[in-house]
Design a protein around this nucleic acid. Structure first.
Lengths: 233, 233
DNA sequence: AACAACCGAACGTACGTTCGATCGGCATCA
DNA sequence: TGATGCCGATCGAACGTACGTTCGGTTGTT
């Protein structure tokens, strides 16, 4: 808890939380803040040029540390990427769970989920881009752990989708997995086109995505409206 | 036309189509087939491990050529990626235009577009994954040209979406750009989860995506159906 | 003889990571 | 209090490797 760098797993002693009773929290704060700052710079760089192209030298320059200094805070480049994804996904999942508290209506749950995701995206574009785009840049245990987090996020969304179907379309033949993945497609593709600074506000986009998912593009009472003709030429 | 390798742009002479009048087509066929085979192997490899991780040595091994032999067919690694994207996007756009021929109903146009995309995805997963995932791995002119192709595809889809709105929801307040990008999100995210071999058939997925886009998840005549209560405990 | 097809070997470079050293603050003890 | 020793923070320089690309050559067909 509060531990940001995996360096705290060092074999013995080293920098741990309860060392000297006084001033320790200051030192730790500085250490964690530094690690956070580096991670932030790395996030921006990776989001900008991609994981493979973001060299440790460039990360060091962007963070204002020497190349060797990076390794004082992070074991390896891949662990940096893992930490970025881990922190982001954790924040996303925990934030969602929190905002879902007390909401019982399935429709509202879905809206909250979409709003939370889009809002988090708008506030942390670089981090979410890295999480959407660099999914397979991790290997082995790191990949597995990130995968479990994504799975948890999927389960959360899937459960909401299931409840929406159950309450409002129990007889629908739509595949709920396909529906959930389509929703994720809309959300995870945001990083390719959505610029919160330039386009409409996050809540607007979130509202439209929710509306499209729930009611589609054609409003409820349509049933082929070209009664007046004048279509096609 | 029929020219696959950019090597034909060599300063003078070299291999061009009308050279020796006889047997030329055989030689060219072999040459193009070889280039195609290499490109196919490269596509699979890049789709599997990513562009940066797909080394020219690995491509050579996968294609059954020597490392230097690759450069007989392709100027550079980046040009290979460009050709993969160029061919795929061209086939997608041209195939769509073709299948759209004679279809006048906007709804049907949209269904055709989605069906074509999903069908092409199912038949060329690796290529479409590369086109969805390695968009920014190109630079300068190559990026610009691929961007124009994507733009053409977007314009095609956007026009259909506009017509759907005009015919069936002219007063909708939904942003049509956001709607189009959401649709692309659903389609372009396919490569992250959809396995045509394991899951439902491409036409099924295409039909569901079209249905979700047009009517959403809740059927048309819903209007809050929990009249009988029994929801939430 | 010319030229497309193809290759082994090398070149230069950029990368992730490690090594050894320096600096400075803090705790300990004479 | 002042000297001593430890240790976290930081760095310049280097190591080994893997990469994209090029060079010079050989073969086989026309």
């Amino acid at each position: 808890m509060g531990k940001i760098s995996q360096k705290a797993e060092r074999p013995s002693g080293g920098r741990k939380e309860p060392d000297t009773p006084n001033r320790t929290s200051d030192t730790r704060a500085t250490y964690d803040q530094r690690a956070n700052g580096i991670l932030e710079a790395a996030t921006d760089l990776i989001a900008g040029v991609g994981y493979e192209q973001a060299s440790m030298r460039a990360v060091a320059k962007a963070a204002g540390v020497s190349l060797a200094g990076l390794y004082h805070y992070f074991d390896s480049k891949e662990k940096m990427l893992f930490l970025i994804q881990f922190r982001t996904f954790s924040a996303l999942v925990n934030g969602l769970k929190e905002k879902l508290h007390g909401v019982t209506d399935p429709l509202e749950q879905l809206r909250v989920m979409i709003r939370t995701h889009v809002g988090y995206f708008a506030a942390n574009m670089a981090a979410l881009k890295v999480c959407s785009h660099e999914l397979d840049s991790l290997a082995n245990e790191g990949y597995e752990e990130a995968f479990q987090l994504r799975r948890e996020y999927y389960d959360l969304a899937r459960a909401i989708v299931d409840r929406v179907f159950q309450a409002h379309a129990p007889d629908s033949t739509l595949d709920r997995h396909v529906a959930t993945m389509s929703l994720f497609g809309m959300l995870n593709w945001l990083y390719r086109w959505y610029e919160p600074k330039r386009g409409r506000a996050p809540n607007g986009v979130a509202g439209q995505i929710a509306a499209q998912f729930l009611h589609g593009v054609i409003p409820a009472g349509d049933n082929a409206r070209q009664k007046g003709g004048a279509h096609n030429r």
